[in-house]
Design a binder for these strands. Structure first.
Lengths: 242, 242
DNA sequence: GCTAGAAATTGATCTCGATCAAATCTTCGA
DNA sequence: TCGAAGATTTGATCGAGATCAATTTCTAGC
């Protein structure tokens, strides 16, 4: 029990020991000392559904890791039209480094738990650790891939294909190992119909009608609005246009 | 003429001396020795309009900097529908690090000159220079901001707003200092109507009709299809929905 | 300059998703 | 458990942009 390794493990901050961000998120790039430094200025925050994390054009004073829940990134037009331009799940890093103010607003789509820390802490750690910058680059490139995928959906798919693509996106988040030829998969949608519409560039009525089509076709079951059972992932994929 | 600085300057490879990528692109992160190492494996390539740089799902064997011209990034659906998901201008870095195969295809929208180098060279330099990774991160974050801006355009703007947004995007590339209340600005479009349509998620007919509307309204002049004069940038901005 | 082929514009019509309106389901506090 | 407010679904109609079809304009090679 007195091996060096045990001593080392004990140096990892309590908050971080079981944290997904340390395993799969940007904190994985930090050593025990750096984690300790970060944890000294970080705080765990719980947010209710709908809480705003950052407003559009707001000064960026901090960053965070998502510990649980779903965060939506929103862009709006002056007349009130809105588009969700990104969904972030645990253990994603949240924030826009190297920029004074945010170009999007961020809002909790579900109840969310964050590990947040001030701008200065991250900037200091970046200077120390190229590994951290590497992690941030990898996440940024992944988000860029996802954004471009979604641009194809928004620019070229019809309403049914968009809704099918959305269900696949969410089911893939629930079970990343999901294979097209695989079993039934069931989950609760982390978003309301209005949020889905704002993500798909549609109206709530159109989203609802396409879900009904998929239900009548037997591809999915819908229970109490939010609960979805995908009977046939492969067929859902063909409906998605890809 | 024998000062250290002069000796140092002379160490910068001939190819790089006047290169914009060294001033504003990722090569700015490299010192003279690293530039020399890079230039040894890099080659200058000229591509005609329409030439394909990378196919979708193709193995990534190299990267490049754009020295001049415009490159479009395209995503397609199995049935042939296409969406342009990014435009890249000099001195952008071109390629997707840390990924075996490309998720987009890249094509020259105009005649293009590239400085291209093998995958291994970049990977070796990244290990040496955290500065380089920092540059790549900054570009990736900028592209992510642009992609999200465009998602709002694709998801929520109508045809006229999209075409106005496109003209503003291009005029902003031509003159980044362009102010909304500024003078007339004239330029040649770097893309055909079909390419514009594929960027805007519209058809060529719709793009054409919206350009006619803007022309009849006196906001722009159109000469020989490709040449645009923006008479009133401020009014064009109001048409863009922002 | 002239001309063939390509690119862009214009016109007519149709269709998908938006809009407006009403009914139904869900949630949650009393 | 009840009832009200909000969320979702369903129905009817409308309109923006797609589609199909001619023209017209532009470009490149002679």
């Amino acid at each position: 029990m007195n091996h060096r390794q045990d001593v080392h493990t004990s140096e990892v901050p309590v908050l971080c020991v079981a944290c997904e961000a340390r395993l799969r998120g940007v904190c994985g790039a930090l050593d025990a000392d750096q984690l300790m430094a970060l944890s000294k200025t970080s705080t765990k925050k719980r947010l209710e559904t709908g809480a705003e994390l950052v407003g559009d054009a707001e000064i960026i004073d901090g960053y965070a890791n998502i510990l649980s829940g779903v965060v939506k990134l929103i862009k709006g037009l002056p007349d009130g039209r809105e588009q969700i331009v990104g969904l972030q799940f645990a253990p994603d890093f949240l924030g826009r480094p190297f920029q004074a103010e945010s170009a999007v607003s961020a809002q909790a789509a579900t109840n969310v738990v964050l590990c947040s820390f001030p701008k200065r802490t991250l900037e200091a750690l970046i200077k120390q650790s190229p590994q951290l910058e590497h992690s941030l680059l990898k996440q940024a490139l992944r988000e860029l891939d996802e954004a471009r995928d979604w641009m194809l959906t928004l620019g070229r798919k019809n309403a049914l294909e968009r809704v099918a693509s959305y269900l696949l996106l969410i089911s893939n988040y629930i079970d990343p190992a999901l294979q097209p030829q695989s079993e039934v998969i069931a989950f609760d949608l982390p978003m309301s119909r209005l949020e889905i519409a704002d993500f798909l560039g549609l109206t709530i009525e159109t989203v609802s009608r396409q879900l009904t089509k998929l239900r009548v076709d037997g591809v999915i079951q819908v229970r109490q609005s939010r609960h979805i059972v995908v009977n046939n992932p492969a067929r859902l994929k063909t409906f998605s246009g890809c």
